[in-house]
Design a binder for these strands. Structure first.
Lengths: 171, 171
DNA sequence: AGAATATAGTCTGTACTACAACGTAATTTC
DNA sequence: GAAATTACGTTGTAGTACAGACTATATTCT
């Protein structure tokens, strides 16, 4: 808390050459560009980007129940219900009753779901590369590190916004 | 085109320690955190963040017509219509007929609009600072530079996604 | 000049999405 | 074992984006 980075918080120098609010504009631009490429890459996926993210989370993080999944993704749980329905209908995931708690359901990927994810991950990685094509590898790595650090900070700082305990169980 | 940064595009090493799609997750997290703080900062503003961005763009970039404004903001023109209506109703901007083209309208801020923007910019800058509070000033500057560069690249690379000629007139 | 085409902005209807509110079943607390 | 809590699902509602049609002006072509 008493570290050096509290000093420049005097908000005299917001950001070099930025109009207040520009950060949002740039972030929005990046996210939109990303979305476009991402959506292209996962066109076969039901629910598009969201569907991919759900499947990816299920496979890589194995959230214990739907709450953990929705918290991780920042999706309202009532929304998650029908999103999962779509994936179930497509045969990509299943709702299996949790052994410890009969109210809860663990979402697990089917074999088909894993296969599809494996295929799509290649294309998603390529899309991410394409997004960052204008940056050299040093810059990409810097950006990745900063973005990762920031998002962790935020998810820690924001009280109710995104508990996301799912992550904490895994690191 | 023949510059060095094309070499690492072999997509063998997507991003250090990232699962494909993680970039989207981190970006989404940051954007959501940002939105929350931003929305708080501009609570008085009609249309919240969008309203602020419109007003800011009008004041700082002076787009010649609504098309330029909608392109810059990445908003559909039919949407822009009623968003502007809201700001007009609130007395923050006016539609003045463009002198050169009687079809077009230039959106200009009223005195009240400029005043409000001045007030809010302070709070928005503070919100941006708060978002980046976890980064030291070097990191913030790095991030700002990278984000800015990336968003410019993207807006250039994406064909129809965001023409945004408004920016080009100004740099 | 006059006809055809294009452009700026608006309006209308539609489809999607998030979310609040309520309901049900299972679990935990006291 | 009664009350409160939690996990999930369902329903209804409001907000939002977007396609399509429409008006007025501008431009282009012949």
């Amino acid at each position: 808390m008493a570290s050096t980075h509290n000093a420049p918080l005097s908000l005299d120098k917001p950001l070099p050459g930025f109009i207040p609010g520009d950060l949002a504009w740039h972030l929005g631009m990046i996210l939109r560009g990303h979305q476009t490429l991402f959506a292209e890459a996962v066109a076969e996926m039901p629910c598009s980007v969201r569907g991919y993210q759900m499947l990816s989370t299920v496979v890589h993080h194995e959230p214990a129940n739907q709450q953990a999944l929705s918290a991780h993704l920042g999706i309202d749980r009532t929304v998650l219900t029908y999103r999962i329905d779509d994936l179930v209908t497509a045969g990509l995931v299943e709702r299996v009753p949790a052994p410890t708690d009969r109210r809860a359901r663990k979402i697990v990927a089917t074999e088909q779901g894993v296969d599809l994810l494996n295929q799509l991950e290649i294309r998603v990685a390529a899309a991410e590369q394409q997004l960052l094509a204008g940056l050299d590898s040093t810059e990409s790595a810097q950006l990745a590190a900063l973005v990762s650090k920031l998002s962790m900070d935020i998810h820690r700082a924001q009280p109710g916004a995104n508990p996301c305990e799912a992550m904490d169980q895994l690191d």
